[in-house]
Amino acid sequence: MKNPLKKVAMVIAATAALSAIIPVTSAAAVSRTDCGNRTDFVKITNYNWSKTLCFANAGSQNVHIYRVNEVKAGNNRVLVTLGGRNYTIEKNRSIKDIEGLDQELTYIKIY
């Protein structure tokens, strides 16, 4: 009969070896946050300029934000899908709905 401690030691050694060669990746997720007076967050204003939502952290997310008036990139490069069209917004830039289309924002990616 084989030594069970030897088997356990081999499993631990194999696990340690795999852990050393497999890179750890962090989950990239956009998160909603309180805007406060911050200007570095992605800021979305909607419902006739009466509501503001802010997002932080790199990543992407499907969303449903209705009647969007403006999207500000803050200190980020951002890709959004607004009214079915993709828009890339560069750092410290914004896009505004000057025609009153009240479109839905369905996707956001912060680089």
Rank of each mutant, 00 (worst) to 15 (best):
C54R: 10
N76H: 15
K51V: 11
N75Y: 14
R32G: 02
D40G: 04
V24M: 10
T33K: 13
T39I: 08
L53M: 06
K51E: 07
L5W: 12
G83Y: 03
K7Q: 07
N75R: 15
N86S: 15
N37V: 01
F55E: 00
I98S: 11
I110W: 08
G74N: 05
A56I: 01
G59N: 06
I65F: 10
P4G: 12
V8A: 14
D34A: 12
S60G: 07
T106E: 04
I12A: 12
S26W: 03
K91W: 09
E90H: 10
A27H: 03
C54P: 01
G59D: 06
R67D: 08
K109E: 15
D97T: 11
F41W: 09
K2I: 07
N86P: 00
V42Y: 09
E70A: 13
I89T: 04
K6M: 07
V24Q: 05
K6A: 08
K7T: 12
I12K: 13
E70P: 01
W49F: 12
E99S: 11
N86A: 14
I98Q: 06
V11W: 07
V42R: 04
G83K: 15
S19G: 14
I108K: 00
T39R: 13
P23A: 08
T81W: 03
I98N: 11
R38Q: 14
T25E: 09
L79Y: 03
I108P: 00
K51C: 05
V11S: 06
L79S: 04
R77T: 15
L101Q: 15
A13D: 09
G84C: 14
I21Q: 06
G74D: 01
I21E: 03
N92V: 02
L82N: 02
D102K: 15
P23G: 09
D34E: 05
A29T: 09
G59H: 05
T106F: 11
G84I: 13
L101V: 00
W49G: 06
N57A: 08
N3L: 06
Q61M: 15
I21P: 01
I98A: 05
K72I: 02
V30F: 09
Y66M: 13
